[in-house]
Amino acid sequence: MNPCAFGTKDPTYIDYHDNLWGQPLYDSLQLFKLMALESQHAGLSWLTILKKKEAYEEAFYNFDPAKVAKMTEQDIDNLMNFPNIVHNRKKLEAIVNQAKGYFAIEKDYGSFSEFLWSYVNHQPYDMQYEKPSERITVDETATQLSKKLKNYGFKFLGPVTVFSFLEAAGLYNAHLKSCPSNPNNLK
Results as ranks from 00 to 15, higher is better:
Asp77Met: 01
Asn78Leu: 11
Asn78Pro: 00
Leu79His: 00
Asn81Leu: 08
Phe82Val: 09
Pro83Ile: 14
Pro83Asn: 08
Ile85Tyr: 04
Val86Met: 12
His87Lys: 15
Asn88Cys: 11
Arg89Ala: 06
Lys91Cys: 11
Lys91Asp: 08
Leu92Ile: 13
Leu92Met: 07
Leu92Cys: 05
Ala94Trp: 05
Val96Phe: 08
Asn97His: 10
Asn97Gly: 02
Lys100Pro: 01
Lys100His: 04
Lys100Cys: 02
Gly101Thr: 13
Gly101Trp: 11
Tyr102Met: 11
Phe103Leu: 14
Ala104Ile: 14
Lys107Phe: 06
Phe112Cys: 08
Ser113Arg: 05
Ser118Glu: 07
Ser118Met: 03
Val120Leu: 03
Asn121Val: 03
Asn121Gln: 11
Gln123Trp: 04
Tyr125Gln: 10
Asp126Pro: 00
Asp126His: 14
Tyr129Pro: 02
Glu130Arg: 12
Glu130Thr: 15
Lys131Ile: 15
Ser133Leu: 13
Glu134Asn: 03
Glu134Thr: 07
Arg135Glu: 11
Ile136Thr: 14
Thr137Asp: 09
Glu140Pro: 00
Thr141Arg: 09
Ala142Thr: 09
Ala142Tyr: 05
Thr143Cys: 02
Thr143Ala: 10
Lys148Ser: 10
Leu149Pro: 01
Leu149His: 08
Lys150Asn: 13
Tyr152Phe: 14
Phe154Thr: 02
Phe154Met: 05
Lys155His: 13
Phe156Lys: 06
Leu157Asp: 02
Leu157Phe: 09
Pro159Leu: 11
Pro159His: 08
Pro159Asp: 08
Val160Ala: 14
Thr161Gln: 10
Phe163Ile: 09
Phe163Pro: 01
Ser164Thr: 14
Glu167Pro: 01
Ala168Arg: 02
